[in-house]
């Protein structure tokens, strides 16, 4: 039982991080969104595995919610945005793909170094995996900084949020349902607003490359 639980937890958490790194690798916006969807499901899996292990029904509901919002609804919305644009490729990111992957490796090492202190407070199977959550946050932030397309930036933002959610699941075995509900809906709202913004940007500027928006400074 215990080894199965640990193995499943490691697999699901690992999937979250791997899909985060994969978003850096892929250039086609559609496949980036697919990676995001996979990551949302991985995150839901972590929550459900923890819920089964701790016999926590509320956490089970949270896992279901995460699955629906982050695995299906948010990627679905983003896919709709990317469909509007035929040439939806992250053509040249500010940092190219190979360097991004090297940098991601550095970030992952950094997060292991940083979180050794956190895990030492309560060394359990779950808390040993917190570096993965922190690495996801950093990779997401990195994506937010280096990618030019607005959609990629939104994905970066959601990666950060997913990373934070992963850390909370692993450290506290789930936050109260209402908090998770709040933060998930928050993300949904952000995505809806950004979707609107991206669409109108595309209409006015014929691109969603944010570098074009310099002239809007006061």
């Amino acid at each position: 039982m215990s080894t199965t639980y640990v193995g499943a937890l490691e697999l699901a958490s690992g999937a979250v991080l791997v899909s985060a790194v994969m978003t850096l690798w892929r250039r086609q916006v559609r496949s980036i969104v697919t990676m995001l969807s996979l990551q949302g499901m991985g995150l839901a899996a972590v929550a459900i595995i923890l819920a089964v292990h701790e016999h926590d029904k509320a956490l089970l509901v949270t896992g279901g919610l995460v699955f629906v919002v982050k695995g299906l609804v948010v990627p679905g919305l983003l896919r709709r945005v990317s469909k509007l644009d035929s040439n939806s490729r992250e053509s040249e990111p500010l940092v190219n793909v190979p360097s991004s992957l090297v940098f991601a490796a550095v970030l992952i090492v950094l997060s292991y170094v940083v979180s050794s202190r956190v895990t030492s407070f309560a060394p359990t199977e779950a808390t040993h995996l917190t570096p993965i959550g922190i690495a996801t946050v950093l990779v997401g932030y990195f994506m937010l900084v280096t990618r030019r397309r607005a959609v990629s930036k939104i994905v970066g933002l959601i990666l950060v949020d997913n990373g934070i959610a992963l850390v909370t699941f692993l450290l506290t075995s789930g936050v109260p349902l209402i908090v998770e509900l709040g933060s998930s809906l928050d993300v949904l709202l952000v995505v809806v607003v950004l979707q609107f913004l991206v669409v109108s940007m595309g209409r006015h500027l014929r691109t969603d490359e944010l570098a074009e928006m310099k002239a809007l400074r006061d």
Binding site: L94, L110, L138, Y141, F142, L144, V145, T146, R148, L210, A211, M213, K214, A215, L216, R217
Partner: peptide, 16 residues
């Protein structure tokens, strides 16, 4: 300078 990438990078570097 108005570049949103630069602003985001400030935050990222500060976090690191």
């Amino acid at each position: 300078n108005g570049s949103i990438h630069r602003y985001l990078a400030f935050g990222f570097v500060a976090l690191l």
